[in-house]
């Protein structure tokens, strides 16, 4: 272990918060799906990878700006999620948990391997001239695409929060996540709620993929790196707790980045799982509790 200097520590804090916002957005989608359907979506990382590739190809082939591509990747992933729920996940909603796990894991393997067939396992990077800039504030270097990713994550989370709080559809999603029989009695079509919620979850992680693509490599397995972290975030935030997930994302981002300043590079993953185990041992309901209780 090394003791970092103040400049390095500040740098780590800034990086941690910026990445934490993105972790938050990924986890928000995951926790929404879990809260409503009680399903752990192992295909979440594959959805993120699809969002990244969509952004990559839209830029490389058509020259569409990565941030402008959000207008396409969000609806695209919403539809992908919706169709997968409607035709596959819906079949196992009443099945035991291990069947659901096998299905979402199978979907994930399928999508990732299909991506390898189509696009090869090569690592690709987007090189966008105007995003290469770094702003210096004192000794801290701030990368522009990370700032944009962070701000986008806040905006998308806030929009989703507004949707869930203020619209009838959003209220119906919250209602269905906490009281299924009550939802049926007011005429809510649960099947529709499920595919809409799943679509929204996929759209969130797709958006996260798009805003990460400008500063991270693209590869068929890239989703796994983020989604494993997102599972920790979801548990930390309280399974199904929307706001908890976002703040837990910030905490994990910070822990990972600041931790990496103290320990050698490859050991930093250890810190996340160490937190995960502590939470499971001492506060299994998560830091913020389950939203429904």
């Amino acid at each position: 272990m090394t003791i970092p200097g103040i400049p390095l520590l500040l740098q780590a804090i800034v990086n941690g918060i910026l990445m934490g916002g993105v972790y938050g957005l990924i986890a928000v989608g995951l926790t929404l799906i879990f809260g409503v359907m009680n399903i752990i979506n192992f295909a979440h990382g594959a959805f993120m990878m699809l969002g990244m590739y969509a952004t990559y190809w839209l830029y490389v082939l058509l020259g569409i700006d990565p941030y402008l591509s959000l207008l396409l990747t969000i609806p695209l992933l919403f539809i992908v999620g919706l169709l997968i729920e409607r035709f596959l996940i819906a079949q196992v909603l009443d099945a035991p948990g291990h069947n659901q796990l096998l299905l979402t894991l199978g979907i994930s393997l399928f999508i990732e391997n299909f991506a390898i067939c189509l696009w090869s396992p090569n690592f690709r990077t987007l090189e966008i001239p105007y995003l290469q800039n770094v702003v210096n504030i004192g000794t801290v270097m701030i990368s522009i695409p990370k700032v944009i990713a962070f701000l986008s994550a806040i905006i998308f989370t806030a929009l989703l929060y507004y949707f869930l709080k203020k619209t009838d559809m959003g209220k119906a999603i919250r209602a269905a996540s906490e009281e299924k029989e009550g939802a049926l009695t007011v005429g809510i079509n649960l099947k529709k709620i499920y595919y809409v919620a799943f679509g929204i979850g996929a759209a969130c992680v797709g958006a996260a993929g798009t805003v990460i693509a400008p500063f991270f490599y693209v590869n068929p397995h890239v989703g796994g790196i983020f989604v494993i972290v997102a599972f920790v975030v979801v548990v930390l935030g309280g399974m199904g707790n929307f706001i908890g997930a976002f703040f837990a994302g910030l905490i994990i981002g910070l822990a990972e980045s600041v931790g990496a300043a103290f320990v050698p590079g490859q050991v930093k993953q250890f810190i996340i799982y160490f937190i995960f185990i502590l939470v499971l041992l001492f506060k299994p309901e998560g830091l913020f509790g389950r939203s429904n209780e």
Binding site: D168, K171, A172, R174, A175, E179, G182, A183, V186, G187
Partner: peptide, 20 residues
């Protein structure tokens, strides 16, 4: 057992009654 939506407000519960 009523099956109301506990973490929604009373007004939101009623609004959802008129969801259709």
């Amino acid at each position: 057992g009523r099956k109301i939506f506990p973490s929604l407000s009373v007004l939101e519960n009623l609004e959802l009654g008129s969801y259709l």
